[in-house]
Design a protein around this nucleic acid. Sequence first.
DNA 1: CTGAAAGCGCTTACAG
DNA 2: CTGAAAGCGCTTACAG
Lengths: 345, 345
Amino acid sequence: MDDGKRDVGRRVTSFDVAERAGVSQSTVSRALAGSPQITPQTRARVTAVAQELGYLVDHRASRLRTGRTDTIAVVILGRPEDATRSANPFYFELLGSICEAASQRGLEVLVSLQSEEGEFFGDYVGRGQADGVIVVGSARNTRAWTHFRELQEASPRVVFWGSPFDDAGWVRSDNFAGGRLAVRHLLEHGYRRIAFVGPLEERLGQFQERFDGYAAELAAHKMEPVFLPSYDALDRYAQGSGAAAALMERDPRIDAVFAASDQLAFGVLEYLQSHGIAVPDEIGLVGFDGMAAGTICSPALTTVAPDLRKAAAMLLDAMDGTAGPSSERVPVELIERASVRARKA
Amino acid sequence: MDDGKRDVGRRVTSFDVAERAGVSQSTVSRALAGSPQITPQTRARVTAVAQELGYLVDHRASRLRTGRTDTIAVVILGRPEDATRSANPFYFELLGSICEAASQRGLEVLVSLQSEEGEFFGDYVGRGQADGVIVVGSARNTRAWTHFRELQEASPRVVFWGSPFDDAGWVRSDNFAGGRLAVRHLLEHGYRRIAFVGPLEERLGQFQERFDGYAAELAAHKMEPVFLPSYDALDRYAQGSGAAAALMERDPRIDAVFAASDQLAFGVLEYLQSHGIAVPDEIGLVGFDGMAAGTICSPALTTVAPDLRKAAAMLLDAMDGTAGPSSERVPVELIERASVRARKA
DNA sequence: CTGAAAGCGCTTACAG
DNA sequence: CTGAAAGCGCTTACAG
């Protein structure tokens, strides 16, 4: 019954450090927290003892006490299937930037892949696990977005990347500008009939905006958009190659494609290559996302890339809750690679 | 001074639910935790009130009380530079599998990208943030590994993926078998002089093992290994294309390459393509890792893929601490794609 | 089957 | 500048 001093298993607490250092527990806490009202000598002694005993502040206790969590949650949505396989690699690139930005602000990052209805969960704030949550992922998982939209309405600290909903609470690429950029680039490089590849029927805010930019730039040159009204519900890659096939057959004059995402572009590329159509000589191709894999395909993919560093910073800012629900645009840039020919018009 | 009942900002606690449901706080706790000694009626009432008030258990408090965290930490090491850019995408694929496996076991996942000395940190267990930590990442970041090795010696709940150290505490691909598999596949498809691409001087446990498997299989066929003694400290992609160049020049009889990782293979592919060397007809190519990007390059990359599902499960098991420090092998499988010709020998 | 109470390990007013 | 004490919100023996 005697509690004993079984060193084994017992956590080293601030009381242990206090005893050993000959100060009170509150002093240990203050010294280690860097309180300015602690003597340098005291702090030095406490720090030394803490190190000696291998003491580390228990975050469960400090966070319970302070009410903070210093943590953000990132929810990555996959399609309703295998979450890992169906999560677009782009989201992992974004996650990388978020981790880096969070770390600079002294925040930890909790990651959750979700795809199936029933496992949707974003109440990290309510459970005291995070100060806010960022939701990114497949816009096609409608049920997931509906779930998180409700959550967002109840809590101001939920921010979406992309989001199929147009009202506030998101950060997005400057999709319209990106669409114009892609088309202008293709026109400047001598292409004359530019098709758009990407499904628009899915309430995909971002794809629609990219299309709008594409169409606007074409209109400025008195050109007509060329695109498919509907897509099968396959993965992006298959959608891309399928769309390329349908489009080429329908309109042989097409000499360039703007794909609404890099994954779609990879599918387009696959189709073109397997049909002996030369890229960029016969067909020019521009993607969207700036994915790392775009350097590996051949030819390397010219693409419109959002500034992921800024994206991460904006997401964290939006989560701060200081401002109300916001809608922020991340600037995009065209990365010239090899899927557009060099020769100018 | 009166605390008042400002609903705003105050957390809903189990006391609030208790009051409203007309039971004690302990009953609320038990009911919501699913304790079998609570009447169905009581549980139903409590659950209803909890829902009504939007009550959620505060994990900071419950974890402090129970001593558990139900969380694991995953540290992803980049090269000492930009953490995001330098973290191999393969690690994000592995992270995806870990997230999925963790979620099935009811665990949360904390992710940290680390690359610079000074920011290395893995004491999540000591701080009560996680029950264990998995370290994955660039074997080239020697200082990072040294840091985490010390941590591992002090704590049994630190597990490495890969790891440049051979003693226990890791999960690795079955690299030796993978090396043999790759070579056998190339031989069976008619290639006769197979070079190895991958730096071996970096104390890279995994690369060395892949080489050993490669060399062993060649030896079984009375063939000699062909490889480079040293590599420049560039990224894997550049190492791959550089090695391909050096190797081809040195030995024109080479008709196949086994690359120690997919990233290296992508570099090799880039060199071959930009020099008009046909893959798979003139040169066969096999990578290692089973990365998704391997389906996008052209020709698509034949590769040796570890079973990431099993890898994740093994990592979590190893972290459980039930067994002592272990060394587990993840089975690998050869994924046939297009960088090896179909024609049999 | 339910309640009163202790205690997890901190931070931070409040005194001195 | 330091200490004694309260309290963050739970879980879980201990009673009844």
